[in-house]
Amino acid sequence: MSAPFSWIRPEPHGIHIVPADCWVDPARAVDKALVTHGHADHARGGHGQTVATPETLAIMKLRYATSDGATPVHYGETIRLPGGVDATYIPAGHVLGSAQILLEHAGERVIVTGDYKRRADPTCPPFQVTPCDIFITEATFGLPLFTHPPIEDEMAKLLDRLAAHPDRCVLVGAYALGKAQRVIAELRRAGHHEPIYLHGAMEKMCRLYEDHGVDLGELRLVSDYSKEDMRGAIVVCPPSALNDRWSRRLPDPVTAMASGWMRVRQRARQRNVELPLVISDHADWGELTRTIREVDAQENWITHGREDALLRWCQLHQRRARALALVGYDDEDD
């Protein structure tokens, strides 16, 4: 009998499942990888075998052109890995295809969340609270000042500004995978049925979402239309294009950005944003701490983000926790 949980080991390049010689979200190419979702700091090309949801595999194929050794696992499905380890994929509510991975071995249960949120999202199924012994959580917005407002408020802000400037356009910077599609879907839900214009880099991912049954309404490519056409319209682009020369083709854009970081004024100013929209695909502070309480694991491991503060919270609430020093995880543009 080996020591409890000795079969799962956090290493700098990812979480190692020792008996199966498998890695979760490894930062470098490995023989066998379990991937939580398609964002670049979690999903990388070049693995011998990639186990992920069909949606995540489709996203990886589009972004990193990797389809070798793709092993799809549906939500709720369990696969048996070598060495007697079972892996079950559970919705994480982060982006299309995102999953928490429940790992079971010798009666011990470990969950790796990848990234997650607790708010409703029309583009993916909601996070499911699942009991476990070790809960390996993200902490991107792990500071008590992060409270994401209701998305309806942010949509109202956006539509108000649009109405106030009928001869301009509102240019929304949004992360190309997940955030952009969620913003578009939420605009539709808020009753905005006008065509929405897309930066070229967003097109394929939006089509992929549509192929997976997410209705985004009428989308048009900026490059196919004139300045005149786009007056009074919403244009969505990746954050990197916000202050780029590309935006000169737009009719006097009001610069908006959809990101949880927009809660901090100086962050918005750094990006020259005129209309900050506090919209995030990650759990905010209240949700991170609520989730830790609800999952109620014996131990919490904190992967990436502001781990110092979440660690402190766990200490204050007598919950066992440790921060993992993983390399290669970035703050996404969320």
């Binding site: 500071l143 000042l145 502001r306």
Partner: peptide
């Protein structure tokens, strides 16, 4: 501690 971490971030 949470105050200081928040203040440093902002």
């Amino acid at each position: 501690v949470l105050w200081t971490l928040s203040r440093d971030f902002v």
